[in-house]
Design a protein around this nucleic acid. Sequence first.
RNA 1: UGGGAUGUAGUGUAAUGGUAACACUGCAGAUUCUGGUUCUGCCUUUGGGGGUUCGAAUCCCUCCAUCCCAGCCA
Length: 562
Amino acid sequence: MDERTEEKTPLNFLERIIEDDLANGRVPDNTIVTRFPPEPNGYLHIGHIKSICLNFGLAEKYKGRCHLRLDDTNPEKEDIEYIQSIMRDIRWLGFDWGKYEYHASDYYQQLYEIAVRLIKEGKAYVDNLTFEEMKEYRGTLTEGGKNSPSRDRSVEENLRLFEEMRQGKHPEGSYVLRAKIDMSSPNINMRDPVLYRIKFATHPRTGDTWCIYPMYDFTHPISDAIEGITHSICTLEFEDHRPAYDWATSIDGIDHTPHQYEFARLNINYLVMSKRRLLNLVKLGIVDGWDDPRMPTISGIRRRGYSPESMKDFVSRIGVAKVESVVDYSLMEFCVREDLNKRAERLMVVLDPLKLVIDNYPEGKVEYFEAVKNPEDPNSGTHQIPFSRELYIEKEDFMEVPPKGYHRLFIGGEIRLKYAYYITANSVVKDEDGNVVEVHCTYDPESRGGTTPDNRKVKGTSHWVSASEGITIEARLYDKLFLSEYPGAATGNYLDDLNPDSLRIVTDAKAEPEILNAKVGDYLQFIRNGYFCKDNRSEGLVFNRTVTLKDSWAKLKQKMGV
RNA sequence: UGGGAUGUAGUGUAAUGGUAACACUGCAGAUUCUGGUUCUGCCUUUGGGGGUUCGAAUCCCUCCAUCCCAGCCA
């Protein structure tokens, strides 16, 4: 019995590296420091959640810290609105960077001084090749490049030109500062990478102080070094940049050496996750904005009703590795359903109302039934639901000619109205087109509360809303934005795979009065219809469908071809 | 002979020389005042070929496949 049942949760490769570094005294102060470095050129999306959870999660787990660093080195694309949304989204996930808030632009002066030093040491030079010439001199993937004529420019002239660049004496594109590394390197990133370019753009933070801006390969590693980052985690496409990263952190005078590790970014089928494509959806007006509930942005899924806990659970389930992978959308839905099932208050809401009249129930009478807020949570409490002679049920819950396996209401059939009574349908009223607009039924007073003395069973239980007491609400029924597993795979244009029915708006859904207590941020389940939340941008009673319930009847119907 | 990486069920992730497993999906059934939840069961896996070893997903060789890189983007 002395065998300890020590559950070892398997470590991912990054945790192994960290534990190994820690065990071998390779970490200053034994404190790991990570950073989340978004570029404020768009809204954060689900893919970023993986990175956020990784960086903040690792810091939490190993009692280190995680910096938030806005990687703002390209003023042309970046905006203060994005910075604010990024902060809001990280906080929503429950992470806190405390006082460790940085901006790459904080380092512009230091970066500039390092650049000057490199020039003085003959390790950087000002180049005046045009874009085209630059490309030509760079060589190709299979052939090395050749040295720019500017490579031999004197230190004095380099210094003078760089200073003139800084002073704004040269137009954009006329000069750049390049590192003198190796034009014949098989790694293109090492063929004298550009360190600085001229941009006469107003920076969201530094304004017009600068007209030269440092490039990623120069800024990022040095920012990491300045902040004392120990483990700099990024996505796979930066693997090729690691030599450039190591080059920059080895510059004389930089006394801290962070290391870069790469992991596979998160891909999910049926979703597009690139900022370019998301921006496009916003610009073209295909969606309502960055926080449209169909967007895979953090703001979007928050507005859709996803909980941060469910997303963190999702991220922990998909793991971390170096293999390019595509996660099933269904796993995300599973995670949100699992979480919301435990916490959502149940409400009866009829999305597609059909009038139901109980002929033997007294006119004008209203009685109340007690409903549990959440059967999965014994402490959730109850609320009252008004019942009356005229009710609404879902159109789907009644059929004149029921198919095989139909458990719901039909003429002569008996079902339970949840919490209330058993009813039997007797007749229907139709409009001129032959559509059923009203169902007449009788109820069994003995079945009050949903069970009968003779203990007879019914196959179906329907939710319902009192016609006189019910509240009219708007429900926005969201579905996938794209129909294809890999949007654009077939035609090359992801817009070809847009789902025309990604949003169905119902303006006359009927809800029990309890709906009036719903607040933005509450997690709700409309019984048998799915999880919903109050829209955080609308004034009135507007509810967004987060996700449907699993629906095995729909699946069965489809299989039977009904 | 450009460079860099990666190959485990349909999907994702474990197993780090000792019986290939967990979750999701899918399928079947039980329970149920949500056709939800819960529970039970089933399906399917080490890219190919060699080698080392008593024993290989794991070590070696080789082949194959896939992804990333030629922005003054990040």
